[in-house]
Simulated scan of single mutants.
Amino acid sequence: MIDLIPLSYEMLRVIWWLLLGVLLIGFALTDGFDLGIGALLPFAAKTDAERRVLINVVGPVWEGNQVWLILGGGAIFAAWPPLYAISFSGFYLAMLLILVALILRPVAFKFRGKIEDQRWRNLWDGALFIAGVVPSLVLGVAVGNVLLGVPFRLDETLRAHYDGHFFGLLTPFALLCGLVSLSMIVAHGAAVIGLRTEGVQAERARIYGRYAALTAAVLFVLGGLWATFGLDGYTVTSVQDTLGPSNPLRKTVATVPGAWMNGYALRPWTMIAPALGILGCVLAFVGMTMRTWRVALTGTSAAIVGIISTAGLSLFPFLLPSSVQPNASLTVWDASSSLLTLWTMLLVTGFFLPIILAYTAWVYRVMRGTVDAESIGRNPNAY
């Protein structure tokens, strides 16, 4: 059966690396504005009526948007088992923190309207704020730690041992990456608020969104300079078999200052990614300044694509570098599932992904339009 597979093992590994990036970007583009609106809830909306407007912007779509996160986790589990095992066990408390925050969101949606008491509703609005800020920040911190290298090692049986702890994740560079992520998501949420609402909420969102877009651009540039001049990157120093079995210990790896930038010199076209990240932030800032919300949303979307792509392209071919045993670092070439598994999953993905995209497009089309207090009053299913 393997002989009938039309794609090589190397090609399938690259395809699944690209698909993982697509799923992560899909999550940031869709559920990202949900998180951003949650983070802006106390600032863009001051009264209960204003907060209901913002909540009902995301209310009909947040569950569907979260599918992208589930798909991303499933892709890691199926296509990159060592990556799933080490990252989810090493980042266990961080992942649990994200999970608790995401669980708070549906609970807050359901419970805040059950009692007509402002203190009760403020409590759940605070939960929505936490559910927006925590995942946005922690996911960025996780990416920062991947760039720094994760303290894990493999024994001769390929059994992983994690030597770090939760507070060890909170290094200055990782926190900078977390702030890039948070500001990017807040700007994205602000653009959607401006597009879907009117009046005072849109104006407040414009103010905070401009600051967030500018902050994302500045911190992204600072992060790039830090990675270039102040950070040790990883490079494979042996000839790696891109068609061989998945065994991370079959290569040698060295840490070299600024090595994360080497890929841009070898593949100049990849400079499109950081350029898109910066230009997207600038476009978002200009769009919000001029109150042209479609331009602002295009800018925040471009920034998300560019910033996430920059992280992925900088790391390639690494998936999870090891700071304590560099030779055990996981790469695209030695941490994947088997050839048959990757091919079977690609066929399944090729069938279901277009369905998900079509469904998502249909939902957004149905739920388009301005959300205001009057439209909420006409809808018995509003939050």
Rank of each mutant, 00 (worst) to 15 (best):
V14A: 06
I15R: 00
G26A: 15
L29S: 11
L29W: 02
T30Q: 13
T30E: 04
T30F: 07
G38P: 05
A45W: 01
T47A: 13
I55W: 01
N56I: 04
V58W: 06
G64Y: 03
L69P: 06
I70L: 15
G74Y: 05
I86K: 11
S87I: 11
G90D: 10
L93W: 13
L99S: 14
V100F: 05
I103N: 08
P106F: 02
G113D: 14
D117Y: 00
D117N: 12
R119Q: 14
V143C: 08
D163F: 11
G164P: 03
S181V: 01
A190M: 07
V192R: 14
G194T: 02
R196H: 04
V200Q: 10
A202F: 00
A205R: 09
G209W: 00
L219K: 00
L225V: 14
A227R: 02
T235Q: 01
T237A: 00
S246T: 09
A259W: 04
A259H: 04
P268Q: 10
P268N: 09
P274Q: 06
F285S: 06
T289H: 12
T289E: 14
L297H: 07
L297M: 14
L313V: 15
F316K: 00
P317V: 08
V324Q: 01
N327A: 15
G350P: 00
A361D: 02
W362H: 07
M367I: 04
E374F: 09
S375K: 10
G377F: 08
